[in-house]
Design a protein around this nucleic acid. Structure first.
Lengths: 247, 247
DNA sequence: CGTGTTATTGACCAACATCAAACTTAGTGG
DNA sequence: CCACTAAGTTTGATGTTGGTCAATAACACG
């Protein structure tokens, strides 16, 4: 498990450096935080609505997603999470979870005690700034999803989801490393985009027919990045990545 | 204009105390921040997408809303804001605005320099905690709107919007003080809920016919709070208000 | 090879959009 | 105080997106 811990710190540091510079001391502080590792199977909850967590969860390997169960029984997927993300960072300041986080694929996460996070926030103004910034970028992504959900067609939303996911993976170096493969069933895509899985199926077929994406089983890829961005009118400004890293 | 400044501090302090306790020193610190007053007419932008603000805007009187213009020309309204709110608090850590904020009604706002905010964050851990907490509650509201937008019918979403707005007003004491009157045109409601103004009109008529709400011109009220909550399956936990203040 | 999960297809239907016109209301200026 | 205007609301007719239901096909795994 030791290598997973190293991987975890590296992923976290990398994803912080994508939004602002870290000093060597900042990196040391990050590595000083204990990580309690846990392996997850598909659909295992990392943390559930109503919980009062005392630690937050760093994605080390695999993919997680946030979701909320509506009173009518439906599930809304609110975001997807990659290595280096801390999807429930908010629990540091909002004691009670208002949604759940679960594994999209078999994954490894590391739990960081809230006290350790508070400690590094006290030790480094820059780390405080970057963690806060990250939580605000999460909010910006929710705004973008909300605007898309209310104003765009299913096809456009699907294209946007692919653009955003690819862009996020590329920024942290994962797209190049392993190739972009977005693992999601059609039901999961539907719950994320607010459409039925039947409609997801038809939208995916159209995008495939048009040569914009590829799908093999539950792995989806991008076939024509330029045209996909164009169809989605995609502009990643809302992700507030370090402009120096833009291509 | 002097009374507006007092009103501004009072509104800010009240809306912070709704989510956590302040010491007398904290309140002093809040009052130490300079406020540059500005009056606004309907639809005046307070801050626009692309701006790089050096101050954040405190709502003192009136209502503001956040919005985003989509590439297809449509407008998505992302949230409404009441006195005591700082809708662009995020600009403290995200330099470039990814959306705009404008006046829903004639309003008065007070601009707070980012430096003053940073100063009080350094002076008081509790104020830092509460401001961060507030920005996380904003994110929680976006998640709730996103889940509603993707999974609920127009009628349910309208009912939820009324419930949320009433609840927020009541918590800061505005509903009792002035009675709940939600000022919004049908076009604005449509842009917030992702439906056409024609459909908004029909949904409002149904809610009125069922005796759940009242509308006089652009002022909407609640006629039957219990049944409205029931229809919306409304649960305000996601607002993370101080449990001690719950009724 | 079964067995469970996911993907695909077709037929049908509901929610909601669009378009266009008429009606109300609240100013505004003479 | 009334006519005029602009903004917002209401209504009806019609069209489209995407949902639901149900059956079949394709995989994946023990």
């Amino acid at each position: 498990m030791k290598p997973d811990i190293e991987t975890g710190y590296a992923a976290l540091i990398r994803s912080l450096e994508v939004i602002g510079p870290l000093s060597e001391r900042d990196r040391e502080l990050v590595r000083s935080m204990p990580l309690r590792l846990q392996a997850l199977q598909d659909d295992d909850d990392v943390v559930s609505e109503g919980d009062l967590p005392k630690e937050s969860c760093l994605v080390i390997r695999g993919w997680l997603f946030r979701y909320k169960t509506l009173p009518n029984g439906r599930r809304a997927i609110l975001s997807f999470h990659l290595p280096g993300d801390i999807p429930d960072l908010q629990s540091l300041h909002l004691t009670k979870m208002d949604h759940s986080v679960a594994a999209l694929t078999p994954s490894v996460v590391g739990f960081v005690p809230h006290d350790a996070l508070r400690e590094v926030h006290q030790q480094s103004e820059q780390l405080l700034h970057l963690f806060w910034r990250r939580s605000l970028i999460d909010a910006a992504m929710f705004r973008e999803w909300l605007a898309s959900a209310t104003q765009l067609t299913g096809e456009e939303r699907m294209a946007r989801l692919f653009c955003e996911t690819f862009y996020r993976m590329r920024v942290i170096g994962l797209a190049e490393e392993r190739g972009f493969q977005f693992p999601a069933t059609q039901v999961e895509l539907g719950d994320a985009l607010g459409m039925s899985s039947v409609h997801v199926n038809r939208v995916l077929q159209k995008l495939r027919r048009d040569g914009l994406i590829t799908s093999v089983g539950q792995q989806h890829g991008i076939a024509d990045w330029a045209r996909l961005q164009e169809l989605a009118h995609y502009n990643p400004d809302y992700l507030h990545m370090n402009p120096a890293l833009r291509e």
